[in-house]
Structure formats: structure tokens, C-alpha cells
Write a protein that binds this DNA or RNA. Structure first.
Lengths: 123, 123
DNA sequence: TTTATTGTATTATTAATATAGTACAATAAT
DNA sequence: ATTATTGTACTATATTAATAATACAATAAA
């Protein structure tokens, strides 16, 4: 598990996004138990307080829930997860198109460039 | 001119990117004079020190240069600008593909989703 | 019953950003 | 010659993020 945290943005925000995508991608399944706060903090090489802050936020949005002493779990609400997935995908797409547009690259050309990039990759 | 700064990332970094894209997109032409530090700071509603910090960085990379009392100018090196443009475009594409991949959405589907989004837009 | 693990809370300290306010030297404009 | 504008530098302060070090209550595990 690589966390790939950088110092350009608040770490707790990066952790939130990392765990969100791990849930969406299916790395964590609904109902799965998460490692403890201390374990996760150790894995990510951050202070437990920072990890706790990120987890609290994930809990606030309902994506995970905690049971006092048995641990923290992924929500079993499949619909919520699916909904979040399409929501995030759409946000990523819009962000991409906006960034390209800021460089003066419009829709058609943007797609052409992506296609080109994919073709150039070793498969 | 809208700056659209958010509080999720350091402001001076966002300013650097904003001015970079304004140069790349052609909003600022090679040789153009930039507004003064104080004007730009006022436009962006940030402290002059913050703007100065961003401009110093742009100067360090050679994209702009300053003349002591006449002002600050965009580089006349067209090649540098073109090079930066393709470099940034490639970075944006890779970032996009990586983000989608993190959600469990692979290349083919990613392109399909983008195409769908574009079709759904009012033109 | 005892122990270990869990989430959670608290206080203190450090570092990075951003702001505020001021100042100065160089020079273009008057 | 004088004035205004320019980039630049400096000190101080506030805020946020991150770390460090503990502590405690609940309960699962032994």
C-alpha cells in the first residue's frame, strides 16, 4: 500500500481522498474492517492525530463508521459508494477539461491528445 | 480576469499556475508587460508579498523577467513557452488517467466517459 | 477478572502560509 | 529637479497543519 503523500496540499485531505478511492475502486469492500488508526498512521508515516482527523471526516460523510472498541468499518451502503464513484469521476473529467482549456486546448484536441498518449503506452 | 483561488492549496502555488497558463494560452504574449506587483495583488485580492513570492518563482524558471523600475515582462523565448505547454498538457493527461485509474476506471472507459460528457454539453 | 486493543480527547510545540505595515533604491515620467 | 512608479526587502503577527506525548473509557480477547 503506497500512500504517495506530497507536501503541496494538506496531508489530511490527501488521506481522505486516498481512502475514498480505495473504497470506490473496491480495494476496501462494504463492511470491511479498516486497520486501526495507529496502524494506518504508521503505514502512511503520519501522526495518528492526522489520520484521526481524516477518518473523522470520512465518518462525517457516512462513508465509514466506527464501533467504539471493535474498530472502524466501511459502509454497507453500496448505493452511496456507487453514487460517490460517478460523482468523483465526473469531477475529474470536468477538472481535466478545464485544465486543458486553460492551456488553450479545446475538447476535440484534448481527446486527440489523450488517445495519442494511450497509443504510445506499452501495454 | 478571475483568479478563482481556493484554500485547499497554498495560494502562491495557485498564482504561479494561473499566470503560467495565461502565458501558455496566449492571454499574455511574449514581451508583454505584466501589471505591477501591487496591481496584480489587488486584482487577485492577496497580499503583495504573496504575489511577489509567486512572481519570483516564475522569474527563477525564466518565464518572466523584471527590469528594475520599468516593470516585469513575459519572456520572448517562444520555444520555452511551447515546450512548457506540451509538458503541462502531458502532465494533465497523465494525472487524469491516474485519477480515473484510482477509481477503477481504465483507459477505454475513461475516454468513453469524456466523450459522453462532451456530447451532453450545450454548445 | 485481567489485559490488550480500540476510538477518542487534550495540551504543547513547531513549521509553513498569508497578511500587515513599512521602507528603500532605481528610474521613468513630469 | 521633482515626483511617482517599480521591484524588492524586512519585521511582526495570525492562522493552519502537523507532530509529539499522553491519557482515558469501552470492550473484545485472554
Amino acid at each position: 500500500m503506497s500512500w504517495n503523500l506530497d507536501s503541496d496540499r494538506p496531508i489530511f485531505l490527501q488521506i481522505i481522498q486516498k481512502i475514498q478511492t480505495d473504497i470506490i475502486s473496491g480495494f476496501y469492500q462494504p463492511g470491511d474492517k479498516l486497520p486501526s488508526v495507529r496502524e494506518l498512521a504508521s503505514e502512511a508515516s503520519v501522526n495518528p492525530n492526522t489520520m484521526q482527523k481524516a477518518l473523522s471526516e470520512l465518518e462525517r460523510t457516512g462513508l465509514v463508521y466506527s464501533q467504539r472498541t471493535s474498530g472502524r468499518f466501511i459502509t454497507e451502503d453500496h448505493k452511496m459508494i456507487q453514487h460517490l464513484k460517478s460523482e468523483l469521476a465526473q469531477k475529474i473529467i470536468e477538472e481535466f477539461l478545464e485544465h486543458m482549456s486553460q492551456l488553450g486546448i479545446q475538447r476535440e484536441e484534448a481527446i486527440a491528445l489523450i488517445t495519442e498518449t494511450i497509443k504510445g503506452e506499452t501495454k
